[in-house]
Design a protein around this nucleic acid. Sequence first.
DNA 1: TCTCCGATTAGAC
DNA 2: CTAACGGTCTAATCGGAGA
Length: 421
Amino acid sequence: MPVRSIALVDCNNFYVSCERVFRPDLQNKPVIVLSNNDGCAVSRSNEAKALGVKMGVPVFQIRDLVKEHGIEVFSSNYVLYADMSNRVMTLLRQFAPDQEIYSIDESFLELTGLPNIAELMQTVREQVKRDTGIPVCVGVGPSKTLAKLANFVAKRHPKSKGVFNFNTLTSQQMSSVLRNIPTEEVWGIGRKLTAALNDMGIVNVLQLRDADVPSLRKRFGVVMEKTIRELRGEACIEFEDVTPSKQQIINSRSFGNMVTELADLEDALSHFVSNAAKKLRDQNSVANMLQIFILTNRFRQDQEQYSPHLAIPLITPTANTMTLQKYALQGLKVIFRAGYHYKKAGVILSDISNASVYQADMFASVPEKPELMQTLDRINQRYGKGTLKLSLDGSRHSWKMRQENKSPEYTTNWNELPVCD
DNA sequence: TCTCCGATTAGAC
DNA sequence: CTAACGGTCTAATCGGAGA
């Protein structure tokens, strides 16, 4: 049996890189991309990182820095990023017998048994860059956790030329690399666990790898045990080549402006239900439970807070937008209180099962018309999202999110292509 | 006492 | 002009309710 080789391919500063593909003038300039509603910085170019822009910092806190250094600021353009991601993932798939798409900008590849891995991974980098414009780095190891860690090394050390492979190291080299990586860089070790481990004197990855498993498991649980075993080279987090269907679908948004009117919340919730139900139908599922919530702004200490939540069990499991909207709006009337400034609302579809399996409720009084939903989805598929909507769906503007610096949808929308002279 | 549930926590990106 | 801090998702764990 050859040693297990798993690669983790990760796009560099993905959202920023997507923007740069269509704005080559922004190469070597500080650039950031913001979260929804233009809230926080969620992607930063290396130049922006060097200026001290931290991951997740609210933009209003770095206003001076942005101005002083001319940092280029973009609202997030998910249509563009999703399309660029597809292009990258499609290319990557051709290099390995198995692929797991882990996130919008990361993919695991199964390389076990393939010859010349170092060379192959350089080819991957060159081809992805050439064909999509996106720079990527590759980490390779005997487990997913080590592959991710190798990727971290590849990103941080220019000497690695974008590829780092733990499987080619001697055990001394391995130890010395791990000793120089702080614990918090390990996949699965977040803020809380880092603090707890540091308190115990475990500050680098080598110490974590060689720590006593039974006592750490007792204190922190199974996940910690798996992490340590993965660091020792034992693959215990399986490769998931088929994406499992979602157990819960959430659609929620912060509003661009405070909302006080019931009618605006109705409009927003109808819109969220419509998005969530579409996702549910796309995975051929039905939901047994609908939950709705509305929230005031938790950062405004000077304002009265009110954040109710309502769970609505459905008599018959459904994916029908109209049925779900009806219940959502009934529920909203129950929890809505006038006089508050609402900042966010959302819906959750849960208790999800497969649509083809469920038994129709013989006592349901109003028969549903699933064909209507299919037709709606098909028309929107052919002519573009939002071509056809139900009447209760996002027509009021007041709650819509802020997006003041969004780039064009270069790759998916003719109408947004910049005009050339 | 066991099991099932919802709520809470932690983490990832 | 002012106010301004994201959105989904999963898994583990815990405590209470009910069997």
